[in-house]
Design a protein around this nucleic acid. Structure first.
Lengths: 225, 225
DNA sequence: GAAATAGTGTCTATAAGACAGTATTTT
DNA sequence: AAAATACTGTCTTATAGACACTATTTC
């Protein structure tokens, strides 16, 4: 075996920053580690890339999510790759981090997960803290000009609900008229015919769903919001 | 050795999409491969990650650029990670792709490189075509709201020169007044005192350099341009 | 009908672009 | 002085936000 080929045989893993909304705050899903290193510690769901079964690293991330958290995330995006000699006590390693967004309802069927608000994270092993920070920055940034936050909202939803999701992610109130204008321009949503959210002591709100053409995809706005 | 640890020993490489401007068009630097696979074929500069000497994958990319192309790029950004069983004939592999931008002057001292316009690329091995496409999309996208294109311009430069660089990257003319207003807001540039670009049969232009606080960094605009 | 929130019309403020002017150089 | 491009002042247009009004429900 050539020296350079030996050099390239590294510990390769994937880690998933799975985010959702809970009590009007962004939360990250953590899992207690079963094995060393850091056995028993809360960490991001992660695992080795399995070359013999995974079509690529994204498939590894989806498999980790399925096997360790028992769920499937329609939105799964590559975040960044973290590497170096110090991030894992086992030695030089490389981890491809992914970002997943799910509505809180999806996590009901995943009891092994612990949700931690991104503003008050427990100490995390490896460089998982940096991964979470990068994921949060990515979500905040993309929420300014894309439909990314719809993945945090179970369908069907009302426009006031969706606006509240955007406001939570962005951490600031949004102008109602502008928000609705922008949503209209994005052409992302369609009203569910005849479906209104009733129950409140007020006018019921129209329920919407994502148009088929945009499922699993993002819609981008030229100028933000 | 456990099966999962064996699974994680993969071929790990870095590839660099090194871009510059030539004749008013974005070009990618390619290098003829010395070894199999694809020996003799033009490809992105790339190489194995060397765990014993590289501080992380970014350091590997910088080393590849230095050793194979003989240059150092002040701007080097992680692009994305490409992986899977089919991208490399040697088997399941993982490549961290980086994006580098240099002014054309820097490539004068790197004669091994072949520049290809991104609009007319030769056939590329591996998934290098996908990497170039991703890098071009990234540069075009970030040029809409950041100072990224200044890395394609040797300092000092004039505002009309910089505007031409933006226009080439974005592929559309920009409004001169708006462009200068935005550059002013970014607070990125400072005039070189007393330095004017003379020589043309017209009023000379003020020469600018990037403020020390922004060297190697990007400046972002809230609303684009 | 009072209260509450949904949804809309419209005015105001801000930001982007068009256009034309002045400035400074070479030939 | 003519030509060329740098730079700036200012008007127009487009976009975002403020505000208030109407709509529809429950109690």
């Amino acid at each position: 075996m050539s020296p350079s080929a030996a050099d390239s045989a590294l510990i390769c893993t994937v880690d998933v920053v799975l985010m959702t909304l809970q009590q009007n705050a962004l939360h990250v899903a953590l899992l207690r580690r079963e094995r060393a290193p850091f056995a028993g510690v809360l960490a991001l769901p992660g695992g080795y890339i399995h070359a013999h079964e995974d079509a690529d690293a994204q498939a590894s991330a989806a498999r980790v999510l399925r096997d360790k958290a028992g769920l499937q995330s329609p939105y799964l995006e590559q975040l960044a790759t973290f590497s170096g000699p110090a991030r894992d006590p086992r030695g030089w390693s490389l981890a491809v981090a992914y970002c997943a967004l799910v509505p809180p309802e999806v996590l009901a069927g995943a009891p092994a997960l612990t949700l931690a608000p991104v503003a008050q994270l427990p100490p995390l092993p490896f460089d998982h803290r940096a991964m979470v920070d990068a994921a949060v920055a990515r979500v905040r940034s993309k929420s300014q000009y894309s439909s990314m936050p719809v993945h945090l909202c179970a369908e069907p939803f009302t426009l006031p609900q969706l606006q509240a999701v955007y406001e939570t992610v962005l951490g600031e109130p949004l102008n109602k008229v502008s928000f609705r204008r922008k949503m209209d321009e994005l052409d992302l949503l369609e009203p569910v015919p005849g479906a209104l959210q009733t129950g409140g002591a007020h006018r019921p709100a129209q329920l919407y769903r994502v148009r088929a053409a945009y499922r699993g995809r993002l819609s981008l706005s030229a100028r933000g919001l």
